[in-house]
Design a protein around this nucleic acid. Sequence first.
DNA 1: AGGCATTCTGCAACAAGGTGCAAAATACTG
DNA 2: CAGTATTTTGCACCTTGTTGCAGAATGCCT
Lengths: 187, 187
Amino acid sequence: MSLPHAILTALLEKPSSGLELTRRFDRSIGYFWSATHQQIYRELGKLEQGGLIRALPSERPARGQKKEFEVLPAGRAELAQWASREQESKPIRDALLLRLRAAAVVGREGLDDELRRHLAVHRRQLTQYEAIESRDFAAAADPEDRLRRLVLRAGIGLETFWVAWLEEALAEVGDIGDTETGGRPGA
Amino acid sequence: MSLPHAILTALLEKPSSGLELTRRFDRSIGYFWSATHQQIYRELGKLEQGGLIRALPSERPARGQKKEFEVLPAGRAELAQWASREQESKPIRDALLLRLRAAAVVGREGLDDELRRHLAVHRRQLTQYEAIESRDFAAAADPEDRLRRLVLRAGIGLETFWVAWLEEALAEVGDIGDTETGGRPGA
DNA sequence: AGGCATTCTGCAACAAGGTGCAAAATACTG
DNA sequence: CAGTATTTTGCACCTTGTTGCAGAATGCCT
């Protein structure tokens, strides 16, 4: 539903080829809206066909040949229209939480290893976000950058939350294991 | 990928019919793994066919007739096995953040209304979670409940984060509008 | 009993996301 | 220049999630 708009936004920030977009979806925009290169190419095709973007003219258009896209006025209008519509915020969908709930009925085998693994991942991500913030947004400047910084700060806040929660969870799970009757290992 | 395991977990907590499951997916489990009734019926069919669950015998099995399911040993084994496997935590996918990013290039028309709307939603959800916590988990009891409480606390933490971030965002967007050159309204 | 709403189950079609694979151009290497 | 790797684009297919609709049992109302 939103992939086309993610692409339009990315292309407005900077006209790009499919592969360049893919790279940018591995950073930046991809931090809150991920997409694979096949999704991106498919969507570029649709957007071009719909007259929302166009390929910049190149000498020899061919299959393995790089193709750059830019947003047409219709595309910008569509994005503006989408952005001013109401959006439903869809509920949480988190496998780790589901897993905890499952652990409550089938045992906590390997649970703390998993929690530790996730903790490491979120700590790393948090560090990376913080590096980006102090590198790119040291001095809050124009309105555009202030909005982008706001988005980044959401990422930082979320990762901060997960780190804190995972630490709490590890302590709790450890404590459950300790206090369990007879010291039976969790299972 | 995880819906069958969500259903197995729910059925282990309490054998249920499709509609009862649907109701429980609107609360409880649904707070972190939502599903519609069609998904649930489809999956129940597959799980039954795969020998992981079975329908409790009823006098007159027929189409509009209630059908209760319980988990078979194979189902419990599958769930235990899934729960002890490593899970990839998939990245954030949030339309509101994407929208902010879009607003940076096409204008902030109606942005603060949207932020306010989301703020109200998250505040309400937070209140509800907190009510559940003090109602159901006032005294932390057996290991199962302690794990379920941990899951609930993740929900509380996430909603708390969103409320804080949305308040920050509203202040920031308001400030951008104020300081913009010549007092031009945000667009 | 007839009619109507509700409960409960389910099909069919569609939309979106993801995986695997491959073809065409280009760059590198001996 | 032949062979191999990389870059860039793309197709076909599969899974997951969503929407719309409908059939069958049940209970209620008059």
